[in-house]
Amino acid sequence: MTSQVPVTVLTGFLGAGKTTLLNRILTEQHGKKYAVIVNEFGETGIDNDLVVNADEEVFEMNNGCICCTVRGDLIRILGGLMKRADRFDAILVETTGLADPAPVAQTFFVDAEVAEKTRLDAIVTIVDAHHLGTQLEESHEAAEQLAFADLVLLNKIDLVDTESLSRVEARIRAMNPYARIIPAERCGAPLDTVLGQNAFDLQRVLEIEPHFLEDDHAHEHDDAVTSISLHADTALDPEKFQAWFGRLLQENGQDILRSKGILDIEGEPDRYVIQGVHMLMEGDFIGPWPDGEARRSRLVFIGRGLDGMGLAEGFAACKAT
């Protein structure tokens, strides 16, 4: 068996600095070989043997699941790259500034061959610290890209003062409490803080403590995308939880962009870790609860219109009695 090649998805608005980062990755001496999949009509204009053009064609699976919109071109290109004799250490997928990142992420969940040979490493969103405010007001794609991010490369911080910078950070944090924010000038962050993040590994969900526990966040009602953190100190009934969570994703999967959680399931010694993109969810029991630590379930949702979904009540009703 060959190991899975990690794939980093790079999103961000036009001019945020995607090309700068890609050029660094392709030209810096790091001893690794990256293939870069760029969008056909993109702004990158990078000429390199390792660059493949994609057309960002999405299609809906014919199974009636509205959230199963995936990138067929990505399935084709990743399949082709896997056949090459000179295999790659990692692959980067650049999306246009106006692209919805969901179909890219969903491709890794939905296609069995893609899932077998590659793994989604992280969704990296590059943000222009100076222009984020305007972009969030002008288009919903900017919010969507932030909501999906595992890592936000907050670029061009040299163009804003300290006060604006903390305002921008707070705004990102309110929409996405678990993304790591890396401030940078001219995309100058060390590459190993951006690539090889393993963010979709369920193990990593366990490490997202810092902002995870912050109760109920400061809602910013002007942003359509918000987040909600829930917790419970009583063990959960597995059947009740499955039923509630399944129904929730089925009914609101369109609006729940991402979800992550560490759960205490009644009668199980191990932690149950879940994470999802829209209605696609994966979960597994990963390791026992640490000695001396309270068995506390935590669940985070990022999405639109979360307030109307009765999340807190639904989750509370899953407690084992």
Binding site: V110, F245, I274, L280, M281, E282, G283
Partner: peptide, 8 residues
């Protein structure tokens, strides 16, 4: 991908 609580 599934949400089964038992690994296959």
């Amino acid at each position: 991908m599934q949400s089964d609580l038992s690994p296959a």
